[in-house]
Design a binder for these strands. Structure first.
Lengths: 167, 167
DNA sequence: ACCTGAACACCGTTCAAGT
DNA sequence: ACCTGAACACCGTTCAAGT
């Protein structure tokens, strides 16, 4: 395709993710996409985890976060829903992000987005947990939803209710 | 070791999990533990996911849940903390349980434990999400904590605070 | 600086064949 | 009923060697 950079690497990874799921995002598969030997990737990236980290970073980058309005609760809800939507609409994004956040190889922007309007650590932590927990647990429903044509709003409603309980 | 049953299979899986982590729980590794060919396992278990499901089921089995006292909030907190403790103290249990719950191959008892004292679905869902989300995100802190000798209570405190926010 | 080829040490799953 | 052996189609990572 194009020349290999950390950026094009994660972009290709995200395309593979959307098209075939996390299981098909392998170093060998990515290398094939660049028409290059697997070992070539290791000059641009330390290991696979680092590539996955870069993918999550890029996923969070094309997220246009509205500036704070001053209404803390509304801002938190808006940003949580923005993030949740991203996790739900991108195939296997929940699992990917959970792994990346757990291992600390990327995705730091997610916490920042929430922390900016949250203020305290406890709420930020709780919201982060709720986000990735909810997105992870609803993976099957999301897969089914991805296959069907209609936009299923059940999972979003449920998340919204959990949010109301927390905030 | 012993004769192969679905039960001894998951017990060995859990021992491997505790000793070497989820990455080392492979069909081949489990087979070696029984001194048997890998293919032999497939007579007792449909596939690996099913084995992982059985492992989570067994993990939740040796959890002695106190009967409801009638105080809903106290009961919810007690059960959530009991579950959280299990997820935190067993190596890679968070990741394992998340995967099993997401794919629906086991762990149904976890939801039941909470639902019994919760009553409404919204609270149950939120608590489940908070539990696995929090446990997953604190994986690194937990690993470090597992290596150190001192019992780190930070992660439990944080979870307790999130609980207070939710309930 | 950037990439290839080959190797190492693994995976999960299937299936004919054995007892 | 239960297990073996061999095969299939993969993995991530390393590393000497090439240009």
């Amino acid at each position: 395709m194009s020349t290999i950079t950390r950026d094009s690497l994660s972009r290709v990874g995200l395309r593979l993710l959307a098209a075939h799921g996390l299981a098909d995002v392998s170093m060998r598969r990515v290398a094939k996409e660049f028409d290059v030997a697997v070992s070539a990737l290791y000059w641009h990236v330390r290991d696979k985890q680092s590539l996955l980290g870069a993918m999550v970073d890029q996923l969070l980058e094309d997220l246009d976060v509205a500036p704070p309005t001053g209404n803390r609760r509304a801002d938190l809800v808006a940003r949580a829903e923005l993030l949740y939507d991203k996790l739900v609409t991108t195939r296997d994004a929940a699992e990917l992000t959970a792994s990346v956040l757990a291992l600390g190889t990327g995705g730091s922007r997610m916490r920042e987005i929430i922390a900016e309007v949250s203020g305290d650590t406890v709420t930020t932590d709780a919201l982060m947990a709720l986000l990735i927990g909810h997105a992870t647990l609803n993976q099957q429903r999301m897969q089914a939803q991805a296959l069907g044509l209609e936009v299923d709003t059940t999972t979003i409603t449920t998340f919204r209710q959990a949010l109301d309980l927390l905030l």
